[in-house]
Design a protein around this nucleic acid. Structure first.
Lengths: 134, 134
DNA sequence: TGCAAAATGTAATATTATAACATTACACTA
DNA sequence: TAGTGTAATGTTATAATATTACATTTTGCA
C-alpha cells in the first residue's frame, strides 16, 4: 500500500509540483488558477489530487487557513498528524518534526481518558525574519 | 476593555444561548437555522455574533470542522489559544485547560527561532464512552 | 484481448464566509 | 432636548471553499 511519488498520476504530479514550487501554502482555487493552462479545469480535479497527496503524506492541509503545503521531509510520516509554525506577519509555514509531540499529546489525552489517534497543531506567532524586522 | 456576558447584545446572547445548550459543536448555518424564529435571518448576523463571542473568549472555533463551541470554563483565558480533544466517533469535544501547553509550545517554537503568540491544537481519537463501546 | 479498478472529465450544486451599504440604537454632551 | 459619533443591526448580494452525481477514459493485469 506504500505509494512513492513516482506512482503519482498526471494531475497529482501537476498539483504537487505547484505546491513544491511555492514558498507559501496555497489555497485550492489558487492552485486551480495556476494550472489551468495544464489542462486542469475544475475544482474537483484539484481537490481529488490534494486528497490523494494528503493521504500519502506528500501534502498537508493548514486547517485554520484552508490552505495546503507540500511536505519537505523525505518520507514524512505525518500522514495524519501535523504540526506547524505559522507566521502571522508573512504567512510562512514551518513544519515541526519532533516526534516527542506524539508522546506528549498521548499523555495529555490519557489524563482525560481519551484515546489519542492523531493531532493537528498550529502555532501562530512571528518567524525569525519577521521578528528582526519589527 | 473586559467584557462580561451581561454586556452582550441581543444577537450575541441568542447565539451564545444556542451553543451553550448544545452538547456538540455547531456549524454556523445550523445555528442560523435554529434561531430563525428569534428574528435572526442572515448568515452575517450569526457570523458577527460568533466573531464577537470568540473575541471575548466565550466561544471557540474548531478549525478542522468549521464549527463552534461555547466555552464552559468560567473566565476562560483561551481568548486566542485553544486545545481540544475531538472524538472521531461521536464528534464530542472536550477542551484542554492545562496551562503547561503554553510553555511547552513556547519552547518548541523557540527551538525554531519562532516567537510564540498563540496556538490551536486539535487531538483526534476516541472519547471514554466510545472507547468502551468499541 | 478483455475485464475490473482506478483515475479523469464535466456540470451542477452544496457549504462556508464576507462585502457593501443603508438603517437603527444608544450614550454622551453642547 | 436636539445633535453627534460610534457600535450594532438589517438586508441583499456575492465570494470562497468543497462535494455530489454521473459519464468516460486509462491502466494494470489475468
Amino acid at each position: 500500500m506504500a505509494v512513492a511519488s513516482e506512482n503519482l498520476t498526471k494531475n497529482q504530479k501537476t498539483v504537487l509540483n505547484v505546491l513544491e514550487n511555492s514558498s507559501e501554502p496555497m489555497k485550492a482555487y489558487t492552485i486551480l488558477y495556476d494550472i489551468q493552462k495544464k489542462g486542469i479545469k475544475s475544482p474537483l480535479q484539484v481537490y481529488r489530487a490534494l486528497d490523494r497527496l494528503i493521504e500519502i503524506g506528500k501534502v498537508h492541509k493548514i486547517e485554520s487557513r484552508n490552505s495546503y503545503v507540500a511536505c519537505k521531509h523525505e518520507g514524512c510520516n505525518a500522514k495524519t498528524s501535523t504540526s506547524f509554525l505559522i507566521c502571522e506577519n508573512c504567512d510562512s509555514v514551518t513544519e515541526l518534526t519532533g516526534n516527542n509531540l506524539f508522546s506528549y499529546f498521548s499523555k495529555q489525552a490519557e489524563k482525560n481518558n481519551f484515546n489519542y489517534k492523531k493531532h493537528n497543531l498550529e502555532i501562530f506567532g512571528l518567524c525569525e525574519n519577521c521578528k528582526l524586522k519589527n
